[in-house]
Design a protein around this nucleic acid. Structure first.
Lengths: 224, 224
DNA sequence: CGCAATTGTAAACAGTGTGTGAAATCGCGG
DNA sequence: CCGCGATTTCACACACTGTTTACAATTGCG
């Protein structure tokens, strides 16, 4: 499990991010100020850091500089309030890899975290293959026997979720919560509709699914 | 036995949930308002909490926040009416781990409770073996000498229940309540029919059961 | 040993879950 | 504000599963 260090003086936001990370399978370490955060950065050696720029005491800028000065290559995302004049040169100078402007959606933050982790650890597979299909997760490209298959957003998200949970029995509820999110309440039949399209586009014979299998009374399962 | 705290001002719903939990082998503690519930949360230190969002007096949101503020890591499921504007960020802010929209089926609630408890205590094994059979609970896969055995939903649920209660004498009533749920009332002979199928699929000699044993006049027992 | 109660089993039916195309709705970009 | 593609919902047919039933086999007890 990957550790992520969150340094932010806003209690509510910090806890929100922490819970979200936990829910998504990360191990969050929370720090309320720059000094504590810096200490944790070296003590816990996290896989990634989120740093608020504007903090009382040791500022985010200072934290980033000292992290890099200390020789840590940890991927680092800067959080900045919308009013802040954030200048990209500054970000580069302090060694940030990406930045997110508050207020941001948890979904967006998560996407950036995942993207950065993938970039930072090139041993994690970005291309997943099954049958005659190759899927590039970050580029959101799907190819079948070399030629590209067009995917809509929802289709790709669902496909990615299946790929990341091979073999597991997935109920429609779980799929909806994970792919569509907590805050939308579509009909569970929506899942069926999208599975049908995945099959039409990716199964050798969409009448006899071999990779996107129905579990009658349960939901679906992806078999690589 | 695991304790579950239920905080809901709806008397009828609260009692229903309480009965269901009792039937499923949990120890429910019921609280009719936020203040009492909060007190119980710290007094009883339950394994899991169910909290209604909308309550007069101390609201569910407040309860959740104070539970977290008090340092409790208790897994927490929020119950919300369908009309309520529930948004992911709010849920995360107050420290909820999952939510269920009313009206919900007891089955669904139970599934979420179990899933959350499993997540919270990751020491529970996922693969159980006996004879030449391996059962993967989460994947819902059964293998015999390496090759997959197809199981229907009810068959697998029954099998899982046997595996989780090895050696115990299980009456048909207990089995029905646990596997089928207390809100469905099938004939007790239904259990027999399914036991027969388990034997046919998994016993070395289905005529002479060694693992799914009959207790005449009582019910069944699984011997690993 | 015989009888009554209990259990084993296969087969049929009823009910539920799923596949799928089409229609309605959403949401973004112009 | 409109148009178009994407998404969601709907409706219907069909496949699968679960439950029941009936009868045979077995068990336990007096």
């Amino acid at each position: 499990m990957q550790t992520i260090l969150v340094i932010d003086d806003d209690d509510s936001l910090r806890d929100t991010i922490g819970l979200m990370l936990e829910n998504e399978g990360f191990r969050p370490i929370l720090a309320a100020d720059g000094k504590t955060g810096l200490h944790e950065a070296f003590a816990a050696n996290p896989a990634l850091m989120l740093v608020d720029l504007r903090m009382p005491g040791l500022s985010g800028v200072e934290v980033c500089k000292r992290v890099r000065a200390g020789g840590l290559q940890t991927p680092l995302i800067v959080l900045s309030a919308i009013g802040d004049e954030v200048d990209k040169v500054l970000l580069l100078e302090i060694g940030a890899d990406d930045y997110v402007v508050k207020p941001f959606g948890t979904r967006e933050l998560l996407a950036r975290i995942r993207a950065l982790l993938r970039r930072a650890t090139p041993d994690a597979p970005d291309v997943i293959s099954f049958s005659d299909v190759d899927v590039e997760l970050e580029r959101r490209v799907v190819r079948r026997r070399g030629s590209e298959v067009k995917m809509t957003r929802a289709e790709f998200n669902l496909l990615a979720f299946f790929l990341q949970n091979p073999g597991k029995a997935l109920t429609r509820d779980v799929i909806l919560n994970s792919v569509w999110g907590y805050d939308s309440f579509p009909n569970t039949r929506t899942v069926d509709a999208h599975v049908v399209r995945l099959r039409q586009k990716l199964e050798p014979d969409s009448e006899v699914p071999r990779y996107f299998v129905t579990l009658h009374g349960i939901g679906y399962r992806f078999l690589p």
